[in-house]
Design a protein around this nucleic acid. Structure first.
Length: 190
DNA sequence: AGCACGATCTGA
DNA sequence: CAGATCGTGCTA
């Protein structure tokens, strides 16, 4: 399937977040494919967004967000978790989409061994998905348009009826306007 | 140089 | 509902 190009990411972040639903996230970890269909995302929209890491300007940690779109912004938090974001919009616009959930497609056995705890709820939650797919800080800044090591490709078209938009999770510190923005997108399962 | 805290997850 | 656990960024 076609690897998503730079232009896919070079758009309004909220649109990209929505468009990423149904695409396939692939990580090649020592030769084996670990992949899943993206079913939950959140848009973080630059300096003006008080929930965005780049809100207070450029720092060593968030520098990748200020670069070209189509790169992975991965950071470490709570002393134990990694989060995966995909950089969007043009250079110097520090925007990104947080990947919050995937449905495992390939490498499910290996994902289970990577996770401490087994079970079907393998990759819902931004930190759990990183652990299952073996994504860590060494992939920070990786160019996702190369189609090697870590990338996103076309997979499935999700009917609009199945997509819900809600406020983002875990950003109670943000201003009301940003706290309430419907910038989280998820595919309704059942 | 010190310190408070986080786009989370788990188990009690 | 608290504990895990540490890099980051703000303050001094």
């Amino acid at each position: 399937m076609a690897v998503l190009t730079r232009n896919f990411y070079l758009r309004d972040t909220v649109k990209v977040a929505r468009a990423l639903l149904g695409t396939k996230l692939v990580h090649l970890a020592n030769g084996s494919e670990l992949s899943g269909m993206i079913v939950e995302t959140e848009a973080y929209c630059g300096q003006k967004d008080s929930a965005c890491h780049a809100h207070r300007g450029k720092t060593p940690r968030n520098a990748v967000m200020f670069g070209q779109p189509g790169h992975a912004y991965i950071y470490f938090t709570y002393g134990l978790h990694y989060m995966l974001n995909l950089v969007t919009e043009e250079k110097d616009q520090p925007c990104a989409v947080l990947i919050r959930g995937v449905v495992p497609l390939a490498g499910i056995e290996e994902m289970e061994t990577r996770r401490r705890k087994k079970g079907a709820e393998l990759t819902n939650g931004p930190a759990k998905l990183c652990q299952a797919l073996g994504i860590d800080k060494f992939l920070n800044g990786w160019d996702l348009t190369l189609g090697s090591k870590l990338w996103v490709e076309e997979y499935k078209t999700i009917p609009a009826k199945l997509i819900v938009a809600t406020p983002r999770i875990g950003i109670d510190y943000a201003q009301k306007e940003h706290r309430e923005a419907l910038w989280r997108f998820a595919v309704e399962m059942h």
